[in-house]
Simulated scan of single mutants.
Amino acid sequence: MQMINLERKKAMQIFFRPAICICRLLISICAILLLGACAQDNKLGHAADDCESFGELRVVCGVQAPEDLALLPDASGLLLSEYGGMQGSGGRISLFDIDSETVHVLYDADSANDLKLAQNAWGELGCEQAGEFSPHGFDLARRPGGRWQLLVVNHAERESIEFFELYPGAAGDWQLAWRGCVLAPGNVALNDVAATGSGFVVSQMSSKSRFKTLWSFMLGRDNSKLWRWTLERGLDAIDGLDGVGFNGVASDNAGKRFFINAWGEGKLLVYDRISKKLTHEVALPHGDNSTWDAASPGKLLVASQRGSLFSMARCVSKHNTNCATPFDITEFDTRDMQHKILFRSDGQYFGGGTTAVRVKDTLYIGSFTGQRLLIAPVGYGTQSL
């Protein structure tokens, strides 16, 4: 009987093999055509070197794809994650001074100071500092002892989470020191990270296979997990927490909850760390990064794109130009799950927004493409909503 079943299985595989191959070929062709069409779509957006203001909107030029932002502890400026791509390098962590609107590099792969001589004190034993650097999502938070820690997802050379300490230098200016790292499993593609007090959680957006990623997004198949790390237990996937295209993640350590933007599902998921269950699923189109609003405790600012998977994919191949995909910045109240749009862009002047920080009545907005940081008033584009 077992032989018969094996023969049947083998026959079915042979029968369906041509269809599977054809499907794979068609999807690959579609992906190539979509990516190749990027040049036509992006001609609608402003050029990467367009530094002129547009009504109430203005930009700071000379920054490389500021995919994630964080407000400094003294609110004097922002940390920028200057994204180098999923397989790239040449990224950096920079500091944007709000008063002077100038940018200077705090860390990159070519740093020639004591950053390269630092020892692994906070991360996984045996994890060595990478020779290349391409940051993605990051999170600035205090460690239990009070020191400021910056956790950074790094794609260059390996998938890893890098630990940095942010501290004031002798002249009072902010400095970064590398403090360790944690390596991710070989085939995962990470996206964002959030400190938990005893460690961190990090979102896996997909696998590293482009074909599998495109296939899973198109069919709505689970391809993502949330991983949790502590020094005692190491890095483990959280059981039962799977989805499509997990992107930004935030941790409410007082309320013992995680907030996960399931980009491929159009939802914001709320996970209770005590019951180990999802407690809420809130409709949110293509949520990217979330940042805690320093001015409004308990509220998150969530960047969400209003374009399709294909429009975003077309922007990937034009990394240095404006992605003309419309987007919103939404204020999400984690206490009652209510949310409202604070900013809306049609994408033409500045599109593909991935992150936002509010300082008084001003929003600072970054994107995974282009060479600009957007500065906009709260409420822009929402008058007709």
Rank of each mutant, 00 (worst) to 15 (best):
G266N: 06
P66S: 11
V244M: 08
V201F: 03
I22E: 05
A254R: 15
D139T: 03
L219I: 04
E67H: 15
A237M: 01
A112H: 14
L268G: 02
N322I: 00
A37F: 12
F258Y: 15
H339S: 15
G90A: 01
T382Y: 09
T279R: 12
L219K: 10
E56N: 06
L150W: 12
V63Y: 13
T362W: 02
V60S: 08
Q348D: 06
V153M: 12
G145R: 10
P18V: 08
D222P: 00
V188Y: 08
N253Q: 14
H155N: 04
S203W: 10
F211C: 05
A184K: 07
Q13A: 13
D108I: 02
A11F: 15
S251I: 12
R147T: 11
Q338V: 09
G266S: 08
Y167V: 03
Y349S: 01
G85N: 05
R221L: 04
S290L: 04
G131I: 02
A121I: 12
A112I: 09
S206V: 05
T213C: 10
R17T: 09
R92M: 07
R306Y: 05
Q119S: 08
R24M: 14
S345F: 13
G370K: 13
L69V: 10
S317H: 00
M86Q: 09
H136D: 08
A313F: 15
L342V: 11
D288K: 14
C323K: 09
L71P: 14
L166K: 09
T330C: 07
L214N: 02
G352V: 00
Q348N: 07
S209P: 07
V182G: 04
N191C: 06
T325N: 12
T230A: 00
T382M: 08
L166S: 04
A356R: 11
S198A: 13
R8G: 04
V359I: 01
Q149H: 12
G137E: 07
F246H: 12
V282K: 13
W263F: 15
A171Q: 07
L278G: 00
A177E: 01
L115D: 08
Q338S: 15
I274R: 14
G234E: 02
E82C: 10
K9M: 15
D272H: 10
S100M: 02
I329C: 09
F246Q: 08
N154P: 08
F368Q: 05
V249A: 02
W215Q: 07
A250K: 11
C21M: 15
L231Y: 00
S89W: 06
D173G: 04
A283S: 03
A376T: 05
A75L: 12
F327T: 02
D222G: 00
G90H: 05
M218Q: 01
D192W: 06
D114V: 05
V270E: 06
N322H: 04
H104G: 05
K267M: 06
L33M: 10
L95S: 12
A19R: 13
N253S: 14
E331L: 06
R210D: 09
G352F: 10
M337G: 04
G366W: 09
P168C: 00
R8T: 09
L6P: 10
D114L: 01
L183P: 10
D242E: 13
S311Y: 05
S111F: 10
P297C: 02
I341L: 15
E101Y: 09
I365H: 11
V378A: 06
S100R: 14
R8E: 08
N223M: 04
G298R: 07
M86W: 10
M3G: 07
S111M: 02
F16L: 14
